[in-house]
């Protein structure tokens, strides 16, 4: 198996607070890797470091064999990395279709063209992606008026436009109902298996994590406290203590049906 992503001793501090400290992990093609941990554990910082939005203080990030420390997000994207955001981030004045067309225009290096009208460009290709994520029926609606769960699907379609090898998904199912959640994650799993890509995702819903992830890494206060298969992580005493809880206090017994 090829290693899509290798993170070595990654560290980043903000004004004296160590947001990410000495974190190392890797991700192989065909795998879903979940990153969990309480708020402020450094998940988003980790994502932004890998994505290129932040510059690491120490450590190295290697994507598809290329060291990407300090590369800008748009250059990381060119290596074949797609990204969805925790708080959905679409072009609200455009339709669903146009959002995907935009990503394809960028992929085909057309963004500076002043000649043809967008209306006729990459429509079929865009519709295929929208069908894949199951939102083709809403292709003519403005993203500004879409429901939250639907926006998450648009984000996925946009992220898939550059035929990525690696997908970074920040809370892909936040704001969705339980059925919708598992549907989206099954879709993601299917894409991972058929296209042999890798997915790194963060998630608060433990159901989603333990059902769909191949491997899990656990962060707390910027440090990696555990990694392994779902059953290994579930059995980890330290993880139970800081994150999952022992089930004796309220709010800790997660419905795990």
């Amino acid at each position: 198996m090829t290693k899509l992503l290798e993170v070595r001793n990654l560290a980043k501090a903000f004004g004296g607070i160590q947001a990410v400290d000495n974190v190392s992990f890797e991700l192989e093609a065909g795998q879903l890797l979940a990153m969990i941990g309480p708020n402020g554990a450094g998940k988003s910082t980790c994502f932004n470091l890998i994505n290129g939005q932040l510059y690491p203080d120490r450590g190295g990030i290697t994507i598809l064999g290329q060291r990407t420390n300090g590369r800008k997000p748009r250059d990381v994207w060119k290596l074949g990395v797609g990204r969805t955001f925790q708080i959905t981030c679409t072009f609200s004045s455009m339709t669903v279709l146009e959002n995907v067309q935009m990503a394809l225009l960028s992929y085909h290096k057309q963004t500076r063209s002043l000649f043809r009208k967008v209306r006729r460009l990459y429509v079929n290709e865009s519709m295929e992606l929208l069908e894949l994520v199951g939102i083709a029926a809403q292709s003519r609606r403005a993203c500004g008026v879409l429901a939250y769960g639907d926006l998450k699907r648009v984000e996925l379609a946009v992220a898939l436009a550059n035929r990525p090898k690696l997908l970074l998904m920040d809370e892909p199912t936040a704001g969705m109902g339980p059925a919708e959640r598992s549907q989206l994650m099954e879709l993601t799993s299917a894409i991972v298996r058929t296209r042999k890509i890798g997915v790194l995702f963060t998630e608060h819903d433990m159901d989603v994590v333990f059902t769909h992830a191949d491997r899990i890494i656990v962060l707390n206060r910027g440090e990696l406290v555990a990694q392994g298969t779902p059953s290994q992580v579930r059995a980890n005493v330290k993880v139970q203590e800081i994150y999952l809880g022992t089930g004796k206090t309220p709010g800790t017994a997660f419905p795990t049906s």
Binding site: C89, F91, S93, S113, A161
Partner: peptide, 22 residues
């Protein structure tokens, strides 16, 4: 109405998203 015009609007709507689609 051309790709450049759309790209301008994309830049206006979301700098973050624009950067992450290259």
């Amino acid at each position: 109405f051309t790709p450049f015009g759309y790209t301008m609007r994309a830049c206006r709507d979301s700098a973050l998203r624009v950067d992450s689609i290259g």
